[in-house]
């Protein structure tokens, strides 16, 4: 009986010690990271007015690349695109961008919605635009992926 009472007291003391050692974890506020699109990107999907033309006979988008570096971009192997020459660019919000504005050299600035999902472990960029300045007759949606990403 005495041994039982001593065990009870020991358990109670251990419980109190365990409770006292618990610390309340303060919730950490994690801020959204800035989105960095530096690198060379290629087109993996092209949709025109809702029709997928990525592999349409006569269309070859594979040589095209756009390289983002600092606040500048350059284009290689031009295809119908939101811009046709190099220039600068900016995102409306570096942390949660919803649009990107291109400022091509010698031409008017033009903006596109900017969708930046993670697909199969890698970032895609999705741009929506008209390929001809001053005419919104046809809508293109291009999905870009960084070169060397599978």
């Amino acid at each position: 009986m005495k041994i039982f009472n001593k065990l009870n007291c020991l358990c109670a003391v251990l419980l109190i010690l365990a409770w006292a050692s618990c610390k309340v974890e303060k919730a950490k506020i994690v801020s959204e990271s800035s989105k960095d699109i530096t690198g060379t990107w290629q087109i993996i999907r092209a949709v025109r007015n809702g029709t997928d033309i990525t592999n349409a006979f006569g269309v070859d988008l594979t040589p095209f690349t756009i390289q983002f570096k600092g606040n500048s971009y350059t284009i290689s192997n031009r295809v119908p695109f939101i811009v046709d020459t190099l220039g600068t660019y900016s995102l409306d919000d570096p942390q949660i961008p919803a649009s990107i504005t291109f400022n091509p050299v010698g031409a008017k600035a033009v903006a596109s919605s900017f969708y930046y999902p993670i697909v199969s472990g890698a970032r895609n960029i999705q741009l929506t635009f008209s390929a001809n300045a001053d005419c919104n007759a046809n809508q293109y949606i291009y999905t870009l992926r960084q070169v060397n990403q599978k």
Binding site: A46, R48, I53, A56, P80, A131, N132, C135, A137, N138
Partner: peptide, 12 residues
């Protein structure tokens, strides 16, 4: 197609 397009569109 598209019925209305310009020099820098893809036309099928």
């Amino acid at each position: 197609d598209p019925f209305k397009s310009q020099t820098d569109d893809f036309i099928t």
